Computed example of a mutant assay.
Amino acid sequence: MANPMRGEVAIVLDGQPHVARLTLGALAMLEAQLAEDSLADLVRRLDEGRFASGDIIAVLVAGLRGGGWQGDADDLLAKQIEGGPLAGARAAAQLIALAFRDVA
């Protein structure tokens, strides 16, 4: 079960539950893959709605890998996300929001 206090989001792939979270390593991978100069630039771009479906896939892969999944983008593309593309986009948005929430 996913724990939002730890930044975790539940994602079901092909009927199998997974926990995703954006660890520091996952964020570094995401930043490099999306060719941003900083995490702040990445968050700003996503907040401004300047993202594509490939960005959503990249966030999901980074989050899933941060949760221990061993797949890559090609593996994710071959999976069925429970709830479809909209659920995938929501999970990606949740991952970003939880990773950068103010916990103070």
Rank of each mutant, 00 (worst) to 15 (best):
M1P: 14
G7A: 09
V61H: 00
I11W: 02
V61C: 02
A97P: 06
A99D: 00
D47R: 12
G83M: 06
G67L: 03
G88Y: 02
T23G: 00
L98I: 07
L30Y: 05
P17F: 09
I57V: 15
D74C: 05
G49I: 11
G49R: 06
Q80L: 07
L24H: 08
L76E: 02
A40K: 07
K79N: 09
A58E: 00
I11M: 12
Q70W: 11
R90H: 14
L42E: 13
R45Y: 11
A20H: 11
V19K: 03
A73G: 04
D72N: 13
M5R: 13
D74S: 07
D75C: 09
E48V: 10
A97G: 05
G84A: 05
N3G: 12
D72L: 01
R90F: 14
L76N: 09
D74T: 00
D14V: 14
A104P: 15
D14H: 05
Q94P: 05
E48A: 14
D14W: 09
L13R: 02
V12M: 13
L76V: 13
D41M: 10
V103T: 06
R50G: 13
A58F: 01
G66I: 12
V103L: 08
A20F: 05
W69D: 11
L64G: 01
T23I: 04
V43W: 12
W69H: 09
V9H: 10
A52K: 10
A58T: 06
R65Q: 15
A58G: 03
N3Y: 14
S38N: 08
A52F: 10
L64I: 14
L27N: 02
T23K: 04
N3V: 06
P17D: 03
V9E: 08
A58I: 00
G63C: 13
P85K: 07
R21P: 01
Q94I: 00
M5A: 06
A35L: 12
S53C: 03
L42S: 07
M1A: 10
R101M: 06
P17M: 10
V103D: 05
I96H: 10
L13P: 03
L64A: 07
R50I: 08
M1N: 07
I56L: 10
V61F: 08
E82S: 14
R50M: 13
A104W: 11
V103S: 01
I56K: 08
Q94G: 07
A26V: 14
A52L: 10
G84T: 09
E82Q: 08
A99S: 13
G7C: 15
M1R: 11
K79D: 06
R44P: 06
G67H: 04
V19C: 12
A28C: 06
G15Q: 15
A20Y: 02
L76T: 02
A2S: 11
A87E: 15
A78D: 06
I81Y: 01
D47H: 15
L86S: 15
S53T: 09
H18W: 01
G84I: 03
